[in-house]
Amino acid sequence: MSTYLQNLQNGLFELFSNNSRVILLGEDVLDPYGGAFKVTAGLSTQFPNRVLTTPISEAGITGVAIGLALRGYIPIVEIMFGDFLTLCADQIINHATKFPNMYRDVTCPLIMRSPMGGGRGYGPTHSQSLEKMFLGIPELKLIAPSHYHQPGQTIQHIATQEINPVIFIEHKLLYRETLQLNSEALPLILKTDETGYQTAILRNYDVGIPDVCLIGYGGISRFLPELLKKLAAEEIRIIALLPESIDPVPIEMLAHFAAEAGRIVIAEESTEGFTWASGIASQLYENLWGKLHCPIKMVTSARCAIPTAIQQEADVLISSLNIENAILEVISWA
């Protein structure tokens, strides 16, 4: 069984072997260092001309990648910490996503890869989950595989199928996790949803209908093996849905399975307010009006900077306990 990191590394190797148009740019991506989280380890040795280490110029390298994309290449940009994506926002929003939209016959297959999320004590500017800032941008997709997915397969799918910009989000704490693809403890189904990406569907029970539908993505998956086991012992039946495509979101599939439970919790690590969860919730209300037993409960991190100190950081970030309490709260509605 491979880890999330190994799976992603292997996926990049396969992609580089199969498609000579793929180029990777990023800071500190060359061997022996191999990138801040080692995702590109070995890649520059194997493909020296196609792995470019760049100056510390996030906006600049994004623009360079867009130039490559406009001229037939498939560039992958590694942004060392997702927090720095704000520096790339103008190039992504005002350039990369505009070209395929406003120009005729232009594609811009740009892939922005970036680790997001907290839990490692990196502090306020290196721990955020800023993907919500890029939600709802026309011609931009956000893909965030969990450790119930295969990130290496997904990035190959993006490189071969997508013709326009994609932000690919990797949660820092998932890198070392073992992929949960054949877990016997939790029956897992990977279903290709209406976005063309896969939604991981987990159930912590064998028979009956679920009490609660838990929706999350990416790094939220790290809580699930333990949490779902714990809730199963409390006889609380959960169906967990983890779409890897977070924008566009497979709302039809989510609504279909959420309707079984009638009680919904949506969890994400970004800070409270104007979240992915709130966007999903509004669409689910529309889809499931009259079928819900209680209001949809959203769980996020607190609305403040993410502290460095271990206990303070833990207090601010979304936790397994937050999700568990939200689940108990929605079941408690009569």
């Binding site: 009490d211 809730l231 006889e235 108990l328 079941i331 408690s332 009569a334």
Partner: peptide, 11 residues
């Protein structure tokens, strides 16, 4: 008792 039992008992 399980949490589910507690919630149901209340209900």
């Amino acid at each position: 008792w399980t949490k589910k039992a507690q919630i149901l008992a209340n209900r």
